[in-house]
């Protein structure tokens, strides 16, 4: 134990006018860390899943993101190609190296160049999945890992996110529960990026502008996968 650590903890305890917390307190604190419970959760997103999907869409649009709703995953490649064409972007994407994206019918888009891996400085557009969508504020939650490099979320100017309807929750708290189920209690992916709209700044005379350092455009393909999930 470093002496600085001892010195600081001793100073804290002196100010708190006690030594270690007593046994009862300790048990309570352990409980708070080991079995976290939600505090007050706003009513706003505690609605049906269909309404959560609508809220996700309207919140994203309010944030200057764009949203297209798709009936099935198979429509994703066409939607990506359409987006690039409409925005006058080169038909090249850097895609997250994950099987569910890889398996989509990309061969229907012969003009689209797809590279996998981390983002490079010259990549204009990335295509990634998401861990969750949080309807409350239109927030996308990305959990880093070999299939989800963090640079794809920040380096390219255009970020296309494939979000499945089954991934959309009402509140942040529901997303934490899902994350703990995925990675285990008390553990975390190296990075969890909660993305709420494109990059923005108000640093010059409070004028809000998009694309300060991260993506200028955020485009969400909201895919209805609920039937497949149920069947």
């Amino acid at each position: 134990m470093s002496s600085s650590k001892q010195q600081i903890l001793a100073a804290v305890r002196r100010s708190l006018r006690r030594e270690q917390p007593d046994e009862a307190t300790r048990a309570e604190l352990e409980q708070r860390l080991g079995a976290p419970h939600a505090n007050l959760v706003p009513q706003r997103a505690q609605v049906s899943h269909a309404e959560q999907l609508d809220m996700m869409e309207s919140m994203l649009k309010e944030l200057s993101a764009t949203v297209v709703r798709l009936d099935s995953e198979a429509q994703v490649p066409q939607a990506v190609a359409d987006y690039l064409k409409n925005e006058n972007l080169p038909p090249q994407v850097r895609m997250a190296p994950r099987d569910d994206l890889r398996q989509l019918p990309w061969d229907g888009q012969p003009l689209l160049e797809i590279a996998e891996g981390i983002a490079a400085a010259e990549d204009a557009t990335s295509v990634t999945g998401a861990f969750a969508g949080i309807a409350e504020t239109g927030t996308l939650m990305m959990a880093s890992g070999p299939e989800a490099p963090v640079t794809l979320n920040f380096l390219p100017e255009n970020h296309v996110v494939v979000l499945r309807a089954s991934q959309v929750t009402g509140t942040y708290e529901e997303a934490w529960v899902r994350l703990r189920q995925e990675v285990g209690p008390g553990k975390m992916p190296r990075a969890v990026n909660m993305i709420t709209g494109p990059s923005r700044t108000g640093d010059i005379e409070q004028t809000i502008l998009l694309g300060a350092h991260g993506p200028r455009r955020l485009h969400v393909l909201l895919v209805d996968d609920r039937d497949t999930a149920a069947g």
Binding site: P97, S144, G145, P146, R190, A191, M194, T196
Partner: peptide, 18 residues
């Protein structure tokens, strides 16, 4: 309602991370 980027970082790159 929420800032654009809320980022949670836990430790360095994992062995399998890119």
């Amino acid at each position: 309602e929420f800032s654009s980027y809320t980022t949670l970082s836990t430790g360095p790159r994992r062995p399998e991370d890119l």
